[in-house]
Structures are given as C-alpha cells and as structure tokens.
C-alpha cells in the first residue's frame, strides 16, 4: 500500500531495568498496524511510550505535531495528546454508569454525543448500567466507544480481545473491525493473537526483545517467517473467502467444502496436521482433494512441515515415516486432501 501521508513518525528508545526498547515506526493515516511479539518483547512499553505515559529518548510526531522530542526537551502530556488507549480488560470506571464512562472524555454536549455513540453500537439499553453489570464483550465494546468518542488522532489498542471468552471474541472482533474501518486516524494494535492481527491489521510489526524483527503485510510476514515467534504465528493455514452454505469460495477461485460455512466474508482455518498427502488420488470421504506440489520440507521436532503450492497453498505437517513412504521431496507432485470436518469457518 502506498502511503499518501505519513501520519505517525516515531523513533522511540526506552531504557529501564535492563530492558531496552528501540523502535522506528512509520504509519500512514487510516492504517492499522498490529504489533506482535512474545511476552516481554516491549509491545506494551511501545504503546505506553506513544501514549506519553513514559518518557522516551527520541521523537514522536503525529499529524505534524511533535509530541516527544527528547533532544528539544519536549514532552506533551498524555491528556494533551489526543490519543485513545484501549486496554486488555476494559478498565471502565467502575463507579460511573456506561453513559458517564462514554461521556468522560467529551467536552461539550457530553450526554447527547455519548448517547449517540451508544445508540449506534446498539448499546442504548445499557446506558444506565454500571460496568460490573455488563458482559465482558459489552464492556470492551463500551471501552472502545469511550475512546472513539474523544475522536483521537491515534488509537492504541492493547490486546483488546485477549481477556474475552473465545465464544464472544469473534463477535467483538467483528465490531472492532467495523469501528476501525470508520476511524480516520492512525491505529496501532498490540496483540499476541495472529488471528486478531490478520483480521484487523494492514501491516504487521513483529517485536522481539525490544527490537522490530519483521514488518510487512500479514501475508508477507506469515509466508516467510524469519524468527521462531513468527513461525509459531504462522502455525496455521488461514484462508479467506466467501461462504455459501457449506462452500467457501477462496479469493483464488478455489472451492472448499466445510461442515458449516456460513454466509458472506469468512475465514477458513486448517491446521497443518489436518492436511493429508497421498501419491494416488484418495478414495472415500474427503471432500477437498487437490493436486499439489511440495515446495519445500522442513523438519521441526518430530514432524515435517511441507509447504505446498497449487490450487490451495497450504502447509502440511506429516510424520517422517510418511515422508519416506511418499518418497516426498522438494518438487514432488502429491494429492492433497482435507476432511470437511477439519476446516473451521467463521465470519470475518
């Protein structure tokens, strides 16, 4: 993606307790950057630095305004930055109603504007409720509204879905994606969940031990892992397409058959171990059978990861004995089969 205007330009160095963060970041207006990384990699420190909650060495410029410039001794306080911060767990003020929470950051017409935000999100009936009366998903949605209502120029999301139950995570993720698409500023999302990153971000930034180890689009990053963390991150086959009945039409035109596909824009996830390889076309139950070509093989522990090209690019994980039986080698042509029940599909 070509950046029309670099909206956030940050050079951040933080030294504390033997930990060093050293990051250069440029993000265009309207873009969502997902910062991925293992625990202790400095993701949260980066967010706190951008929010102005910690002092940094370096320079942060947002929309042409210098927020931090250690050389010039400039440090704009958090409250004057117009940045939005959404935490892992909602951090709604427990002593205020939902409406008062959303109105907290507003200056004029507070109640009217807050009510409108709640109405647009379908949460009007919760306006008078206290945060403890909300479900986890509702609370996180209110927290997002509270932040968006202040119309921040920079939105910082710190693992906004990780505290949620898996069952409602997809729902909140959908709402998040919808809200983010309507938001004009720069969005930075910290996460350790690759699904979250791929679903929401235009660009991934992989952080390890305080340094950026990889940047790029989700596809670029997951296709060629350059670190252990990214390799783990790419541990699943994530496909995107349109669902119809039990069918998923992938962007490439290929069709998948799943147990349940739903309607519209969907994700399909296939675990590499669920990808079976054959020398001859298999008979019987598998509904998804393609020709494929083994591009390369990678021994990982007691499994061999086989990267396949063809109708549906996938990574398969097989045992070393299977590799011997199949006489599998780079460039080998194989039949690829995935049972419909092994494909999980959910709405994007």
């Amino acid at each position: 993606m070509a950046w029309l205007a670099v909206s956030l330009h940050a050079t951040i160095r933080v030294q504390r307790n033997g930990f060093a963060l050293d990051v250069d970041l440029e993000v265009g207006a309207g873009e969502t950057v997902a910062v991925l990384g293992p625990n202790g990699s400095g993701k949260t420190t980066l967010l706190r630095a951008l929010a102005g909650l910690i002092r940094i060495e370096g320079r942060v410029e947002l929309d042409g305004e210098v927020l931090d410039d250690s050389a010039a001794g400039r440090h704009v306080l958090t409250e004057d930055r117009r940045v939005g911060l959404v935490f892992q767990d909602h951090v709604l003020f427990p002593h205020m109603t939902v409406l008062d929470n959303v109105a907290f950051g507003l200056r004029r017409d507070r109640i009217r504007i807050a009510s409108e935000w709640l109405a647009r999100a379908g949460l009007s009936d919760k306006a008078g409720a206290m945060p403890r009366e909300l479900s986890g998903g509702q609370a996180q949605r209110v927290a997002l509204l509270r932040t968006l209502a202040t119309e921040p120029r920079l939105l910082l999301l710190d693992e906004p879905l990780s505290a949620l139950d898996v069952t409602i995570r997809a729902e909140v993720r959908r709402e998040l994606a919808r809200q983010l698409s309507g938001f004009q500023g720069v969005r930075i999302l910290v996460t350790h969940d690759p699904l979250e990153a791929i679903a929401l971000a235009d660009m991934l930034v992989v952080l390890e031990q305080g340094k950026i180890v990889q940047t790029g689009s989700p596809a670029e990053v997951t296709a060629r892992p350059r670190s252990r963390f990214v390799a783990d991150l790419a541990g699943v086959n994530l496909l995107r397409g349109r669902g119809r009945g039990r069918q998923v039409e992938l962007d490439s035109g290929a069709m998948l058959t799943a147990a349940e596909a739903g309607e519209g824009d969907v994700f399909a996830v296939i675990h590499p171990r669920a990808v079976a390889l054959y020398l001859a076309r298999p008979e019987g139950t598998p509904r998804n059978v393609w020709r494929g070509r083994a591009e390369d093989l990678d021994l990982q522990g007691e499994r061999v990861r086989v990267r396949l090209s063809g109708t549906v690019p996938l990574v398969a994980e097989v045992t070393p004995s299977a590799v011997r039986e199949l006489q599998l080698d780079a460039g080998a042509e194989v039949w690829v089969a995935v049972k419909a029940t092994e494909i999980s599909v959910y709405r994007a």
Partner: peptide, 21 residues
C-alpha cells in the same frame, strides 16, 4: 491512565477517578 488518555488533566483525574476508586 485511561482517564488521562481521555483528556483529563491531573485535577480531574484525581477528583473524578482516583478519589472515587
């Protein structure tokens, strides 16, 4: 921190958030 990010100055944070909590 959430209150500050929402634009509340030190007095407002103290009066509206710290004290009630």
């Amino acid at each position: 921190e959430a209150a500050r990010a929402l634009g509340a100055g030190s007095w407002r944070v103290f009066a509206r958030v710290t004290l009630p909590l």
